Computed example of a mutant assay.
Amino acid sequence: MTPQRYAYGPGPDQWAELYLPKLPRQAGVAVVVHGGYWRSAYDAGLGAPLAHDLAGHGVAAWNLEYRRMGNGGGWPETFLDVAAGIDALVPAAADHGLDLARVVIVGHSAGGQLAVWAAGRAAFPATAVGAGPAVAVCGVVSQSGLLNLARAQELGLSNNAVTALLGPDVSRADPLAAVPLPVPVYAVHAENDDDVPASQSHSYVDAAVAAGGKAEFIPVPGDHFSLIDPAGNAWAVCRELVLGLLARA
């Protein structure tokens, strides 16, 4: 299938691509947010196979690109882009009759952090994105997400990527600083992940549940990149979680 590109800003990395399934399709939209420790070396090509697979399973998928460190991203630009990129579903929905009452985000690694941030961005302190979102999110599937930025900063993960992104104050975008979210969060984590420690997902889920939120830790076999292999079992678990969230919304 050939996706349709929508620009949400003037920059070369401010766009999303819509993958439409054949009719009839399941209600709702899945937003795919790629990872790469927020760095420009990694792009939406990582999310394209997942968006294609979701469309093959009857779901309209929105593969989101955004500015990253090295090509104009950082704080607040990366976050402004993610917010604007999700809100850009509004014109796409008008063009294709999409149901924006059911929008789920699936994000890998740094994309998991961005997904959780986007799902509850109004709850985060010192948000840079102003008024509430045009598109509400009804659930998140985080794939080995960086969900405890304070601890990731302490560990200096990926050559101090968190500090490079946010500076010393990570609370403005740390998922752990805004628990509980008003939507379910599934923290899927690869059992042999050497890039993002499983404690990033465990600690988030523990805090969210203790605060009265709905969150669940789900271990899956494989390494960090098994989660974005559309032929693998780890991705199949994530896909079923996305489909379930859309069905229940």
Rank of each mutant, 00 (worst) to 15 (best):
T2Y: 09
P3D: 08
Q4F: 01
R5L: 14
R5Q: 15
Y6N: 15
G11V: 08
P12N: 12
P12F: 04
D13A: 13
Q14A: 01
W15V: 09
E17V: 09
E17W: 00
E17G: 08
P21E: 14
P24F: 02
A27I: 01
V31Y: 15
G36K: 10
G36E: 12
S40T: 08
S40E: 08
S40D: 10
D43F: 12
A44W: 00
G45I: 11
G45V: 07
L46T: 03
P49E: 08
P49N: 08
P49T: 05
A51Y: 01
D53H: 08
D53F: 06
L54N: 02
L54S: 07
G58E: 11
A60T: 08
A60Y: 10
N63W: 00
Y66F: 15
R68G: 00
G70W: 00
G70D: 02
N71F: 10
N71Y: 10
G72K: 12
P76E: 03
D81I: 15
I86Q: 04
D87V: 10
V90D: 04
P91C: 11
A94L: 13
A94I: 11
L100S: 06
A101F: 00
V103P: 04
V103C: 09
V104Y: 03
I105Q: 02
I105M: 06
V106Y: 05
G107N: 03
H108F: 08
H108S: 12
S109W: 07
G111N: 02
G112T: 13
G112V: 15
L114I: 00
G120E: 03
A122S: 15
V129A: 14
V129D: 15
G132V: 01
P133W: 00
A134K: 14
G139H: 05
V141S: 09
S142Y: 10
L146C: 07
L147D: 02
N148V: 13
L149I: 04
A152N: 11
E154M: 14
E154I: 13
L155G: 00
G156R: 10
G156F: 09
L157W: 05
S158K: 13
S158H: 15
A161D: 11
V170G: 07
R172W: 06
A173T: 06
P175S: 09
A177F: 02
P180V: 14
P182W: 00
Y186M: 07
Y186D: 11
Y186N: 07
V188L: 12
Q200V: 01
Q200N: 04
Y204F: 15
Y204L: 09
V205N: 03
A208T: 13
A208D: 15
A211G: 08
G212F: 08
G212V: 13
G212Y: 14
F217I: 06
I218M: 07
H224Y: 07
S226Y: 02
L227E: 11
I228Q: 09
A236D: 11
A236T: 10
R239W: 04
E240D: 14
G244E: 08
L245V: 13
R248F: 02
